[in-house]
Structures are given as structure tokens and as C-alpha cells.
């Protein structure tokens, strides 16, 4: 069951993203999701595709400040994922069809999910880590 859920994860280069995606589209696959995991020196994006019950993911590792082409020309429905990833991770995705100019969530702090800022946030808020009466102090 796990195999079926996970599918196969294929690491590829940034340059191969558009040709590979195009090939999958011609073979009848559809975009299931785009996933991003942030790290201190960039991000790792997984584009998952589905055909019937099968799932296959293309994984791209993007160093910080490296532009990444948008797949919206091939899968127009990807604009939500790409806008979100650009907002929350600060990945430079270029030429998104349906660009929201960084206004998806309009969160107060930028690049929330990249690892650098998480440390910054958690060090600002020491009460959260220790647990206990964080909410009590606020509400009482």
C-alpha cells in the first residue's frame, strides 16, 4: 500500500523540468501537486503527477536565488502552487501564468518556510517552545 501511495520519486536537473513535464503531459499524466521543502541553502520541489491510481514525482533541487521556470505553460492549474511556493519559500519561479505578485497569503513575514527564518522566529518566541501557560498569559 505504501508503494502505491508514494509512487516513484525521480530526481532531475532544473533544465530537465520542462521537457520531462511536457513528456508526462503528452503521455496523459495530470498534475497532482507541487510540494516544496525548504532548507538553509535553497529548496527542494517535488512535482507529483498522477495517471489513474499511479503517482510519480519529479524532484528538483533549487539553490537559493536560482530562477526556476514555471510549469504553468504546460499545466495551467499549477499557478496556485507556484504562487504559494514563491510566497512562503522565496523560490524564484519565473513567468507564472496568473501571477499574483506575492499576494497569495499576504503574510506579515516573508519566506516563512525557509529554514533560516524558522530559527529566527522560534528564537523570538521562547515561550512557545517551553509550553505551559503561553495562552493563559494572553487570555487571562
Amino acid at each position: 500500500m505504501t508503494e502505491q501511495h508514494n509512487g516513484s520519486i525521480i530526481p532531475i536537473e532544473i533544465g530537465a523540468l520542462l521537457p520531462e513535464t511536457d513528456a508526462l503531459r503528452s503521455a496523459g499524466w495530470r498534475l497532482v501537486q507541487v510540494l516544496c521543502v525548504g532548507s538553509a541553502d535553497g529548496a527542494e520541489l517535488s512535482y507529483s503527477f498522477g495517471l489513474d491510481l499511479e503517482m510519480r514525482s519529479l524532484r528538483v533541487t533549487v539553490p537559493a536565488e536560482t530562477p526556476l521556470p514555471s510549469v504553468t505553460a504546460i499545466y495551467p492549474g499549477a499557478f496556485l502552487y507556484e504562487n504559494e511556493i514563491r510566497d512562503l519559500f522565496g523560490v524564484r519561479i519565473e513567468r507564472i501564468a496568473g501571477d499574483w505578485e506575492g499576494k497569495v497569503y499576504d503574510v506579515a513575514m516573508g519566506k516563512l518556510f525557509s529554514k533560516v527564518s524558522i530559527k529566527a522566529i522560534s528564537s523570538e518566541d521562547p515561550g512557545a517552545a517551553t509550553g505551559g501557560a503561553a495562552s493563559m498569559g494572553g487570555a487571562l
Binding site: 497569495v104 497569503y105 524558522i118 522560534s122
Partner: peptide
């Protein structure tokens, strides 16, 4: 043009805590 974000909480990040 859809616009979302009014009830974004950011609970995915909470998994680290």
C-alpha cells in the same frame, strides 16, 4: 481572479513544534 489568504493560519509549520 481568485484571491485567498483571509484565513491562512500557517499550521503546516506547527509540525516542527
Amino acid at each position: 481572479i481568485p484571491q485567498i489568504g483571509y484565513i491562512h493560519r500557517g499550521l503546516e509549520l506547527l509540525v516542527e513544534k
